[in-house]
Computed example of a mutant assay.
Amino acid sequence: MRRTGLLLPIFGLLGAGPSGAVDVDPTEFKASTAAVPYISAPAWSVVGSISPTFTDNALFTRDNRKSDIYYEPDVSVRLDGNLTNDLSYRLYARSQYEAFSREKDSNFAVARVGARLTENWDGWRFSAIYENRYDFDGIYRDLAFTSHDVMGSVARDFRVSNATFSPLLLLTYRFSDLAEARRWRFDAVLGIEVKLDPRWSIVSTPLFEAYWFTDGLNTGRRDQLYSADVGLKYNFASNVSLTTTVLFEARTSNVPLRRYRDVRIGPRLDFAF
């Protein structure tokens, strides 16, 4: 494993630009569309997305801004079941990467396996999650570091006329073999979907993230990330949709070099089978 040459890029990207897309997917925390009795057998599914995206800051840096287009496949294999009518579980394996057209230094990949336990109580969903995560430099080229993420979340859906609001709060601590990767992270996400008709919707997912790094050269580093987007979603079927989104993201930090802003535009094809 080529550790020395990876350290500087890792310091800058830990929890940086692509992390919102990579780590937090609000759709994973949405309520099931149908009540499943706990006596039913566990169900397998394959869920994922494919998204070519333009960014005006491919290196996610303050001073060396470069535009590029990247391609991001994200696929999960899941096993979902219920222990009781209100207590469900999920076992999953997830693989994703971002491959840039020109700025190859920004290429990275993540593989993870995890488990989630969710309690439904009076419309609220409380989850405990564990993930074993592998971060790679390049497209599964060199293993950069291994992490164990322990997470707790609370989520709920609110429906007002033809609009659905899905707030999510998530707290994570990361244990890692790389000291600089160890940190606390807090996410506050609001999923918004306004249906125009059975197939078309306007969607948005404003996001706030805060990071507190605890070890190594990142000791004392504090980052905050703000993201706002708007998109138009078309449902081809109940399990296949296409969303075109414009997103603005800004990161602040007590380490000036880690401050940046970014605009991303592109379509995303979501599927579930």
Rank of each mutant, 00 (worst) to 15 (best):
P37N: 10
L91K: 02
G81H: 12
V75T: 13
P52E: 05
N64C: 03
L83D: 04
A35I: 05
Y92H: 12
F60G: 11
S67M: 02
A111S: 11
Y89R: 04
R62P: 10
A21H: 07
D80C: 01
T55H: 01
L87N: 06
V113I: 14
Q96E: 09
V77M: 15
N64L: 04
A99V: 01
N64D: 13
A21M: 11
T53Q: 04
T27E: 11
D68R: 03
T55S: 06
N82V: 00
Q96S: 11
L117M: 04
W44I: 07
D105S: 14
P52D: 03
R90A: 07
S95M: 09
A21R: 10
Y38P: 08
Y71I: 00
A58L: 01
S67C: 01
R102S: 15
L117T: 09
T61P: 04
L87T: 06
F100R: 00
L59M: 07
D25C: 00
Y97G: 11
N64H: 12
F54H: 02
S51I: 12
D25A: 02
N82M: 01
A111R: 11
L79P: 02
F54Y: 14
A31T: 06
V110Q: 06
E28C: 01
E103Y: 03
S40D: 11
Y71A: 00
K66N: 10
S19T: 10
V46D: 05
S88C: 07
P26N: 09
A31N: 03
V46A: 12
R65M: 06
A41I: 13
S106Q: 09
T53P: 01
R94E: 15
S19M: 06
P42V: 09
I69N: 05
A34V: 09
V77N: 04
P18M: 07
D23I: 04
Y92A: 10
T33W: 05
R65I: 05
